[in-house]
């Protein structure tokens, strides 16, 4: 009687199946509504990246790398993009890139506000934290099951899976960044009569920005990883190249897919890392200024030059 085969098996799998199917049927409009903005964003970005001539995009990326990181990163970006183009994966790389870009935009829009809410209320954080733990410990492709059930297959459904997988680090780092702001700093804000909103925008966010940008870097890398895995549910891009290569036992094809993924991942990592470092080195002004400082460092150079002139 102690044989495991004799035990009554709780039909958990069937329950879940029934529940998810019920959700999919009765809440279809909800999921379609969620899908719609992501789909339009994805289509816009992808059509832009696919129709623009490849040298233009390459130059744009090289310049971006130069501004936010360094000339070394710019050279690396240039070489990598040329390599991707010459192994014939440009189009696939652009699809993956648009998937990641969409995911980043959505992650920033939902992740930073949730992070702020978590930082301001211990209760919200106690509720959110285990959810993030589950999201981050769940193996990436486990996400695919409910996503397919609720959103179907294809690149858009893949985009949703990428967003869900990539958003936790941004929430965590935003929460952490705001909580780490020196208490005396927050006290100073309050002592001079800041409202909660002023405290957030004038004190907390500017000082938390380097940490938040660090979180953004993590989110970009998670999105990169997930954008490959979602090839399993029919998302196009570099992941699909690898998947097809494996399916046909075409080692060469799988390998170039892998090379493309690695190069793209390194470009994105270096650029966002550069952004985070810049935020750390010279955070300036309010949140908006700090961000623009990270993005447009030459403004700062001009100003400090002016300051020097004034002094002399």
């Amino acid at each position: 009687m102690f044989n495991v085969d004799n035990l009554y098996v709780i039909p958990l799998d069937q329950w879940i199946q029934v529940a998810v199917r019920w959700l999919a049927i009765h809440f279809r409009p909800v999921f379609q509504t969620i899908k719609w903005p992501i789909e339009s964003l994805l289509t816009t970005i992808e059509s832009t990246l696919q129709t623009a001539p490849f040298p233009l995009i390459a130059i744009a990326f090289v310049l971006l790398a130069w501004w936010v990181a360094s000339h070394r990163v710019a050279i690396f970006t240039f070489v990598s993009l040329i390599a991707i183009a010459f192994i014939g994966l440009w189009s696939e790389a652009m699809t993956t890139l648009s998937l990641i870009a969409t995911a980043i935009v959505v992650c920033v829009i939902i992740g930073i506000p949730i992070g702020i809410l978590c930082a301001r209320s211990d209760r919200t954080w106690t509720v959110t934290r285990p959810v993030l733990d589950v999201m981050q410990t769940t193996p990436s492709f486990v996400y695919l099951v409910p996503v397919v059930m609720l959103f179907g297959v294809g690149t858009v459904a893949g985009g949703i899976a990428v967003i869900v997988a990539a958003v936790p680090p941004l929430i965590r780092f935003t929460n952490l960044g705001i909580r780490m702001v020196d208490t005396e700093m927050v006290e100073a804000g309050r002592a001079f009569g800041a409202t909660e909103r002023q405290l957030l925008w004038e004190v907390q966010l500017p000082l938390a920005l380097p940490t938040i940008l660090g979180g953004l870097n993590q989110t970009v890398l998670m999105a990169m990883v997930m954008s490959v895995i979602v090839a399993m549910i029919g998302a196009e891009g570099l992941g699909l190249v690898v998947l097809q290569g494996l399916g046909r036992l075409d080692v060469g094809m799988a390998a170039i897919g892998g090379i493309g993924i690695v190069l793209l991942a390194m470009i994105l990592d270096r650029i966002t890392q550069g952004l985070a470092d810049r935020g750390k080195r010279a955070p300036r002004r309010g949140f908006r200024m700090a961000l623009s400082q990270s993005l447009f460092p030459w403004r700062n150079a001009k100003e400090s030059l002016e300051a020097k002139h004034q002094q002399s």
């Binding site: 100073a188 002592a191 009569g193 004038e202 955070p283 002004r285």
Partner: peptide, 25 residues
């Protein structure tokens, strides 16, 4: 808040200056 803005101000032990803003700011 009004009182803090107009009647009482405070100086802190570790200065609590915003590192991202100039002296004038």
């Amino acid at each position: 808040r009004e009182i803090r803005r107009t009647r009482i101000s405070m100086v802190f032990q570790h200065f609590a200056l915003l590192p991202n803003r100039t002296v004038a700011e």
